Every structure is written in structure tokens, then in C-alpha cells.
Amino acid sequence: MNIGPFRFAPPWWGVAITVMGVAILSGLGVWQIERAHYKERLVAEHAAARRAGPRHLHLDAAAVDGGRGPRPGYRYIVSGHYDAAHQLLLSDQVEGTRTGYRVWTPLVLDSGVRVMVDRGWVPKTGDRSTPKPNPQAPAGRVTVRGYWQGFPQPGLRLGDDRQCGLTGWPRALNYPPAATVRCQYRAPVANGLLLLNPKAPGGFLRDWDEDAIGLRPWAHYVYASQWFLMAVIALIILVVVNTRRRA
């Protein structure tokens, strides 16, 4: 292709590689923009939650089965009694240099619905032969204040990792999805966790990040601009390397 006194003649494989690279880089840029839009909605939801203040939580089986429940990011006040005999332990949780568990204790509401309360971190002691910790919980009727979030997600989940055939209590699970948590009980379980207020009694080590937004929207826009800039640079390199002045 002649362009004035210059000739642009890239090899076919150079064009193919550049087109593929530009497509990938542009796709990453679009993905970052979508993440920025998601974070903008998340920031707005968290701001609304802070303005709303704590809410009293009332759930029945119909609401849980219908997918209705607490909203992530909001603070709730819940009354019921702890079922300390049927606790779950979230495995391989690290605090500093120590490994341990997060203790999830069911709070049984008057309706019979279980709300999983994350009461904090406890250390792992001994070796594999040592029994798992089974911390005590306050007895009788309690009123719990906390922050609602979904069940934590692993960086990568491979296949269907439901563990519904376990026996004995407490049961140690590794980033269980909601279905796995529910199949441990013969009663409805709310979809999510109530992170026990750090100042509330009856808990353990709690350093909750109640602003679990991560990167702010502007940071995603910066990353998007970098990906798009790299795509433009790839095109410029293709042109510069394959353009020669005609004799």
C-alpha cells in the first residue's frame, strides 16, 4: 500500500498478531470499564446503607425460599438463639503468620430460619489429629448487631464442590457456596453472613473490612485507559516497523 512517498507493506502474520493483540487489549479495557460501572453502583449502595442505619431483620422460610433476604452492605439487628452445637468453620484463614478458622454459628430466628453469624477468627492448634475447635456461644436469647455480606468466594472454584455428606460437628468447609451451607441443615438458611459487630460480646478476633469495595471506580478507568493505550501503541508499532520510503 502506497501512502504518498511511503510504502506500507506488513507481512500477513504481523497483521494477524497485531489484530489479535488489539482485540485482546481492547477487550481488557472494556472489561475494566464494566468493572468501574459496577463499582460505581456498589459505592452508591454502600452510601445508601450508611444513611439507612441498622435495620431489624425478620425472615421466614417463604422469604428465604423466594430469594428475598438481607441486602449486602447494610447493618442489621437480629434476635434469636445461637445453635452452638452445629457450627461451621471456614478453613485456612490466615491472620498474620497464623492459620485458623472463621467461626460461623447459626442464629435461629423465631421463624426457624438460620442466619449464619460470623463470630470471628480462632487459631488452629496442633496437627491433623487434633480435634477442630468448637467455641462456645452465648446461651439463651440474644440480640445481635452486624454487617451483612454474601458468602466469601474463592479466587477460583473448580467444579461442583458441595460437601453435603459430612458427619459430626463442627464441620470445616473451604469457601462453601450457599447451597453447600444450606445442605448442612434441615432448616432454611439465609443466603449470606452477618459479620458480628467488632465491639459485640460473644465473638473472637474480628477485623472486618466493612468497605469491601476494593479498587475505586476511578482506578478501573485508569487501568482501562492503559489497556486502550497499549492497543494504540501496538498499531503504531505495526505501522512504523512496516513503513518504508519508496525509492
Rank of each mutant, 00 (worst) to 15 (best):
P188K: 14
P188Q: 12
P188M: 07
V189T: 06
V189L: 05
V189H: 04
A190D: 05
N191S: 15
G192K: 02
G192F: 01
G192H: 09
G192W: 01
L193K: 04
L193C: 07
L193M: 06
L193W: 00
L193P: 02
L194Y: 12
L194N: 10
L195C: 09
L195E: 11
L196P: 00
L196I: 10
L196W: 02
L196S: 08
L196V: 05
N197C: 07
N197E: 15
N197Q: 15
N197P: 05
P198K: 15
P198S: 13
A200L: 10
P201A: 12
G202Y: 00
G202K: 00
G202M: 00
G202C: 07
G202I: 01
G203E: 01
F204C: 11
F204V: 09
F204A: 12
L205Y: 13
L205P: 01
L205I: 10
L205D: 09
R206C: 09
R206A: 06
D207W: 08
D207G: 11
D207Q: 13
W208A: 11
W208S: 05
W208P: 02
D209I: 05
D209L: 04
E210Q: 09
A212G: 09
A212V: 10
A212H: 08
A212T: 11
A212K: 11
G214I: 00
G214M: 02
G214N: 03
L215H: 12
L215A: 13
L215C: 04
L215P: 03
R216Y: 08
R216K: 13
R216H: 10
P217M: 04
P217Y: 01
P217W: 01
W218K: 09
W218Y: 09
W218C: 00
W218D: 05
A219Q: 14
A219T: 13
H220V: 08
Y221M: 14
Y221H: 12
Y221A: 09
V222H: 02
V222Q: 04
Y223W: 01
Y223N: 07
Y223K: 03
A224K: 01
S225G: 12
S225A: 15
S225P: 01
Q226V: 15
Q226F: 15
W227T: 12
W227V: 06
F228E: 01
F228P: 00
F228S: 01
F228C: 02
